[in-house]
Design a protein around this nucleic acid. Structure first.
Lengths: 201, 201, 201, 201
DNA sequence: TATGAATGAGCATTCATTCAT
DNA sequence: AATGAATGAATGCTCATTCAT
């Protein structure tokens, strides 16, 4: 029935291992995320991970896919529910912040993986595409507002890169800045980019 | 004369090794930056590096200090030369972009080090302070404009974090996005944050 | 009835597993012959193999016994049917070649096992005896011809080792030499050793 | 000066490690030949091997090259010194046997490597070419005698394969057959293949 | 000062075997 | 009888660091 039919217990184990990988990634960072530590967290032996995922690379892939799925499920409906591009942009920013608030550790894990997984010889890294997609999605929202005349005449790509950059700066704050106020920051971000994108009054 | 008196040859060696470390970091990424590769680049043996710097950690510290020094020398005077906060912010952004244009490899090396150097047990990472300083500097510029009434009433810290985030998104583009236009992006960034910070017209 | 009474289904399972082990050994080689791969080939789980055979070692033993049985059944009657030692030697060689022609995979599997199964600390390897028996059988044929005066006065053991060596060189050819002509080679082998063993004319 | 300039001490280490690898291969067999055991034999740490050879594969390659060099140096001049093809064949056989007598362990090591190094998915194995060369060399000697009329009209390739097979049967005897008489066997081999190849009297 | 040889801990991975269901 | 989940030991490899020369 399911696309890749798996035992129930198999699915449970996979989910548990992914959860433990997220935990270790978020708590100890990519560099300290070894199969041994993940196995220790799950109170299993390292072989189990290879058994269920084939290898570390595939486990990481599964982590990314899982977190990306959760993030998408959370954010996409919120954006599509808006009736103006301006509200769409607001929903995009708020959705991202909401995800960070609700799924702190999965987010941090995702960031660790995306920023630290090395590519070949200084190449782009296997998860660069993930970031590319996020920018492309953002560009769609911006294009929408451009067409409706809600937004001023900026370079869409530059704006998308900058919004994404501003959003991507948040996880680092969340991690190590105890005084960081996510709700305040969300409001400020929305205001910032509303002012920056709106057609001049 | 110098605070830590070193022979001339000693200084030359250190400079050479730092330059090679920058090269390897920028070309191959943090993960592939081993002492062996740096030594190979410098056509010396690995022992020399330990001899002159004590260890890999100290070498990386020296790289960061060196690049930060160059960046500061380039940017600080430009900002201080401005007479309005608005021009100061413009100079901050343009200075950062100019640095990226003139010193691509040192910048990329710095980014690699700051983003990848692991801390202890998920701690802040030894170069988080560096980012903190950059944000603090930015806050000063923003505070200046707040006091003079040039800027609207935003949360200084949130704005600083967002500007920094937008700037920090650039190196990644520079690395792997062949169509990226730094000059266009610089102009867009200045416009973006001018609109976002100015007192409502 | 049978010495080790087994249910029918048990015997069928064992036969199936042995057949799959032969397949994997012949197709992928000893090094790639893992219980997991044999189980995959048989579309069963690895536990079944351990269940029916006790372990990998015993499975391999069963493979060897099975193939040796087939080989013996094919070759021994052919040799015994001859009336002269010279014809006996011819039948020995032709029988071996015929077996290779008819049972390529079992033969290759057998060769893989015999040549690759490691002994303890460089000891003889558990299937050295198998080879010993083959040589001993050959010596009997040679002794027969010596007694009847058909053969010249050579050292029986040396001759047996050499004939066996020449025969054992064939599987390797069969495997990787696409131009190898088994029928031609069989005729040449018979001629070669007929000339080498006959009483000088 | 030297093709690959190496320190003296580097060359000595390499030679020592190769010698220890030969020792372990010959004494314990391919399956038990791990970097750990070779390192133990050499009383060094496993890292040294990787340091000097890059990896296990390259070490094995070096072992093969070294032994092949010694074998070639020993045998080729002996064969070339002969004035008839018949003597050339005799020299080929005697040269091989002499090598086995003088360099038992290197030979056994070579045999272990050639027969046990696995290829991909049941492919030929990386050292199959080595065996191919040996057969080709033998074919040259046989072709020589065919042209001079010393040899009868046999299939050269079949004969070469058979002679090689008979020779390759010897190492196994040397290893585990305590009663094996190499000198006797050499004489018998020469007689055998002289009778098998000569033009009928 | 500089070299390069050597170390040793840490890593992912493979695989025969075991066992509860 | 069969499953498949889990184990744990073993292996090759990488790399920062140390040290005698």
């Amino acid at each position: 029935m399911s696309p890749k039919s798996r035992t129930f217990i198999e699915q449970a184990r996979r989910a548990q291992i992914i959860a433990c990988a997220v935990e270790v990634l978020a708590d100890q960072g990519y560099a300290h995320t070894t199969l041994a530590r993940i196995a220790e967290q799950a109170k299993i032996s390292t072989g189990v991970i290879s058994y269920h995922f084939g290898g570390k690379k595939q486990l990481i892939e599964a982590v990314v896919a899982e977190v990306a799925r959760v993030a998408t499920d959370l954010m996409v409906p919120r954006i599509l529910a808006q009736s103006t591009a301006s509200d769409g942009l607001r929903a995009y920013i708020e959705g991202n912040m909401e995800f960070m608030r609700l799924h702190r550790k999965p987010l941090l894990a995702l960031v660790e993986v995306i920023t630290h997984t090395p590519g070949e010889e200084g190449g782009p890294g296997p998860y660069a595409a993930q970031a590319e997609v996020a920018i492309a999605d953002l560009e769609k929202v911006l294009g929408w507002g451009k067409r409706t005349g809600e937004f001023r005449d900026f370079d869409q790509r530059s704006m998308a890169i900058s919004i994404r950059g501003a959003i991507d700066a948040v996880p680092g704050r969340l991690l190590h800045d105890p005084g960081f106020d996510l709700d305040l920051h969300t409001r400020e971000l929305v205001t910032l980019f509303t002012l920056a994108t709106r057609r001049d009054p």
